[in-house]
């Protein structure tokens, strides 16, 4: 379990973290999303004691990172897949990490296998594609078989096959009961992966909810109905729904489940040609939530910042 509580940090005049607070729970994948500059990477560096926070605390398994013995056995992390000595082979990169935790070469071979890197284990990491480096970073994070994982933008540079692999992998890790925190600046990457999402903007948490809750907030259980008669609006409004004409011959209905809408219209003999639950995507939710927090947005003409 990873706990982040009231982290504040300034770099000169800019505030990188402004009271960042959230918890990563075991057994699920927690997405950590937000635009560039939202403080995701800084938060992760503070958790790992790489950066010092001005205020607040970050705990791994209830303890500050620096007090952990063999920290990689408590939390595996991948901050920057490019952080490799180019001349060192993948296996040797993992080997020195293993030695730092009192682990041996056997464990290295296990994680190489898990990450699908056995065939390239003795190749220099300098020749790896970004996708392969991500896999190597995952292997490094898994070395200590930790109950918690923290990955910064692990989908970056991966091909579609790699992305699918990564998603399955993350889901499997969570299913094993691990706490998994995955950051991304693209909500869509987390669509089918995360169980829980922490949305960050300008150094603090904007939303901290399960994916289902988040989608419900955005879509509000709305249903789109297309009907040629005005009766539909009357019938549904009488049943307690809030009905808004969308202008293109459709109605947006809120407050009633889709099955009830269908039953009502059928009972009253109202013809309709189309009925659809309004499906919001995580992307929609994210855009709506971060509308005010995007750090670097192109200024529209006439707008003064």
């Amino acid at each position: 379990m990873i706990t982040v509580n009231g982290l504040r940090k300034r770099f000169g005049a800019t505030s990188a973290l402004d009271g960042m607070t959230f918890t990563v729970r075991p057994g699920q994948v927690t997405g950590f999303v937000g635009p560039n500059g939202a403080g995701k990477s800084t938060t992760m560096r503070v958790v790992l004691d790489l950066d010092a926070a001005d205020a607040g605390e970050a705990l791994v398994a209830g303890r500050p990172y620096r007090t952990l013995r063999n920290p990689l056995r408590h939390i595996g992390s991948l901050l920057d897949a490019a952080a490799l000595q180019p001349g060192r082979t993948a296996r040797n990169h993992l080997l020195w990490l293993a030695h730092s935790q009192g682990l041996g070469a056997r464990r290295v071979d296990e994680v190489l296998d898990q990450a699908g890197l056995l065939s390239v284990a003795r190749r220099r990491a300098g020749g790896f594609s970004l996708g392969m480096r991500q896999r190597l970073g995952i292997a490094a994070a898994l070395l200590g078989d930790p109950p918690a994982l923290m990955l910064d933008e692990p989908f970056n540079g991966m091909d579609p096959e790699g992305i699918i692999w990564m998603r399955r992998f993350l889901r499997a890790l969570a299913a094993e009961g691990r706490a998994v925190l995955v950051s991304s600046h693209l909500m869509s990457e987390l669509q089918d992966t995360a169980d829980h999402v922490v949305v960050a903007g300008r150094g603090k948490v904007i939303a901290d909810a399960s994916v289902a809750e988040l989608l419900a907030t955005v879509s509000g259980g709305r249903i789109t109905v297309r009907s040629s008669t005005a009766d539909a609006a009357v019938v549904l409004a009488e049943a307690g729904a809030s009905v808004t004409p969308a202008g293109d011959g459709t109605l947006t209905v809120a407050g009633l489940p889709a099955e009830t809408v269908v039953a009502l219209l059928n009972r009253h003999g109202v013809p309709f040609s189309e009925l659809a639950a309004h499906r919001a995507t995580l992307e929609d939710a994210y855009l709506e939530l971060t509308r005010d927090s995007v750090e670097y947005r192109a200024a529209t003409p006439g707008e003064v910042r």
């Binding site: 004691d49 952990l68 920290p71 901050l79 920057d80 952080a83 490799l84 000595q85 990490l97 730092s100």
Partner: peptide, 18 residues
């Protein structure tokens, strides 16, 4: 310095926080 150049120093300090 090679570790600073590649950011590997972070991996090092993550593995050995002392």
């Amino acid at each position: 310095t090679a570790e600073y150049r590649r950011g590997l120093i972070r991996t090092t300090l993550t593995a050995s926080p002392g």
